[in-house]
């Protein structure tokens, strides 16, 4: 029986480079899914990735395609500049929760409101990773952070922000979905959501965002499996998965 190739690594990730991510982190997983989608769509030669600041930027060293690091929070603005002047280039941002929902809230909201023809991949793990576990706009109530040592208290810190739902109040966005990578099924669904967001841009439909609920075992103070449990029990309770908006057909 002839050999049948059933799996090969995506070439979008440079093999001889080492990932800087912690064990159990899902950034690497998502970057691989993104790479596979880019491969499958055959758009590598026209792809520009706009990275945020924080752990979301750690892969700049091992992604094999064009990328630019934006100022903290400004990824959607940088993507706007690239896309407006190069409509044939495929532009996506890759941002964490501190980047997209805190310091970059204005840039995110405004790009979504303008209906920029870009794709946004938003990694929500409820905490600042690279800087060492500070409270994020998405930190869960009661969840401890290095700047909320007693846990997030709504009286003092307000409530976790739901970016998909917030953007859903705007008219322009085409596609908003929240997914996760905690199970094989969810992972496969995340990949199809990413593909949908990317195809939307390729077909000129406008602004799409996939919010991916992920773990941060290191800053949550858990091992990888414990973090998965926590994600299922707590993160997904606060950030329910599902399609928030799909105007792909109308767009």
């Amino acid at each position: 029986m002839a050999e049948k190739l059933v799996y090969t690594r995506t070439k979008t990730i440079q093999e001889d480079k080492v990932s800087g991510f912690c064990p159990g982190c899902m950034h690497g997983t998502v970057m691989k899914l993104i790479g596979e989608v880019i491969d499958e769509l055959g758009i590598i030669e026209k792809t520009a990735c706009v990275l945020g600041i924080g752990c979301c930027g750690l892969q700049m060293d091992y992604m094999a395609y064009d990328n630019i690091t934006s100022p903290h929070g400004r990824a959607c603005a940088v993507a706007t500049g690239i896309k407006r002047t190069n409509p044939d280039t495929f532009v996506f941002t890759y941002q964490g929760d501190g980047d997209l929902a805190s310091i970059g809230l204005a840039e995110t909201m405004s790009a979504a409101n303008r209906g920029e023809n870009i794709s946004v991949i938003f990694i929500n793990n409820g905490i600042y990773g690279m800087t060492g576990g500070q409270m994020a706009p998405t930190t869960l109530l009661g969840m401890k952070a290095t700047t909320a040592p007693k846990g997030r208290d709504p009286k003092e810190h307000g409530y976790p922000m739901h970016m998909c739902e917030i953007l859903d109040k705007l008219t322009a966005p085409v596609y908003l979905e929240r997914t996760s990578c905690n199970t094989p099924q969810n992972l496969m669904h995340t990949k199809s959501a990413i593909k949908k967001a990317f195809v939307n841009q390729l077909e000129g439909r406008g602004f799409s965002m996939v919010e991916i609920v992920t773990t941060c075992p290191t800053n949550w103070g858990m091992d990888a499996l414990g973090a998965l449990d926590y994600l299922e029990k707590n993160m997904l309770a606060e950030f329910p998965l599902g399609l928030i908006r799909d105007r792909t057909k109308e767009a």
Partner: peptide, 16 residues
């Protein structure tokens, strides 16, 4: 939406 965003847009456009 701000000066901060505008200069970042220019950064993106100029980088391309």
């Amino acid at each position: 939406e701000s000066e901060v965003a505008s200069v970042s847009m220019v950064y993106g456009a100029a980088a391309s």
